[in-house]
Simulated scan of single mutants.
Amino acid sequence: MVDFSKHEQVVVIYPHPDDESFGTSGTIINFREAEVPVTYLCGTLGEMGRNMGSPFFANRETLPKIRKQELIDACQVLDMELVMLGYRDKTLEFESKDEVAEHLKKHIEKLGATLVITFYPPYAVHPDHDAMGEATFEAIRKMDQDKRPELWATAITNDRKDVLGEADIVIDTEPVFERKLEAIKSHRSQAEGMLNKMQESSNFKGEYENALQRLQYETFYRVNVDEVGS
């Protein structure tokens, strides 16, 4: 059982708009209901994404503005603060890890984070996911040990349980699931395509129910950065 009220400030660090809603929004809602402030450090605007809505309502030129507004809307649903870090989508793996880590460290320390949530590299599927996770781990590694926040990491590769074992934290978001779905649907350009594909399937009901079940449970690993590779 997670005691959401024990933390003073939660900082969520992911690279894209919608990362926070699909994977962590139920957890965020639980922290906010416990009156714990949450801030999202979002790496990019997801401007190189391939999803343009279904049917299309975005194009390569308009997508950054649309995804920025979707992100703002989702953060309003989740009642959390938003900081846009200004990196370019699909290029985080080419940034200096040390420089990104210093950037993140400044934000983490300024906010007084007692918990940081990010991706677990290299078990996060997308190069941007892994790069942001690596930089976050390094940011915490750079901090004085007595000032380091607790670190939870999201792993999403199919082999994660074989390598890392069972997740340390499993949060059932069923009590707040309607708000989680509202946050996901705020990312209209990304979520509508997924829902439409399921609707077109001959097994729509089964696929939809399976998708909802996957979204209902949010899992995290507790990480000691001194025990993982740098």
Rank of each mutant, 00 (worst) to 15 (best):
Y221D: 15
P37N: 02
E174G: 14
E200V: 01
L104W: 02
F4H: 13
M198Y: 03
E209L: 15
Q76H: 15
A101R: 09
F56P: 04
E218K: 05
T27C: 10
H7T: 10
P122F: 03
V125A: 10
A191H: 04
P127G: 04
S202I: 02
L45D: 12
D159C: 03
D159P: 00
I140N: 09
T173H: 07
E95V: 02
K68Q: 13
A183H: 13
G46L: 12
T62L: 12
A191D: 00
K147M: 14
V228M: 06
T39K: 13
E70T: 07
V223R: 12
E150L: 05
M194I: 09
A34M: 08
A211M: 11
V12E: 12
V83A: 14
K147W: 04
Y14R: 14
P55D: 08
L78K: 15
L41C: 05
E207T: 00
S186N: 03
A183G: 13
L92W: 06
V2P: 00
Y87L: 12
K90I: 01
K197M: 06
H7Y: 13
L92N: 12
L63E: 11
V77D: 02
L104K: 10
A191P: 01
R160V: 00
G206Y: 08
L104Q: 02
I140G: 07
E218Q: 13
L164W: 02
L151R: 11
F137T: 04
I29T: 14
T27N: 06
G165N: 13
S54P: 01
I117C: 08
V11A: 14
K65E: 14
A34H: 05
D19F: 05
G23M: 13
V38L: 06
L115A: 09
A135H: 02
E174Q: 15
N59L: 10
L71K: 11
S25T: 03
I66E: 05
T136F: 03
V83K: 15
K205Y: 01
Y14C: 03
K6A: 12
H107Y: 14
V223P: 11
A167L: 09
K180W: 08
K97S: 08
H187E: 10
Y14M: 11
D144F: 01
E8A: 08
E174F: 03
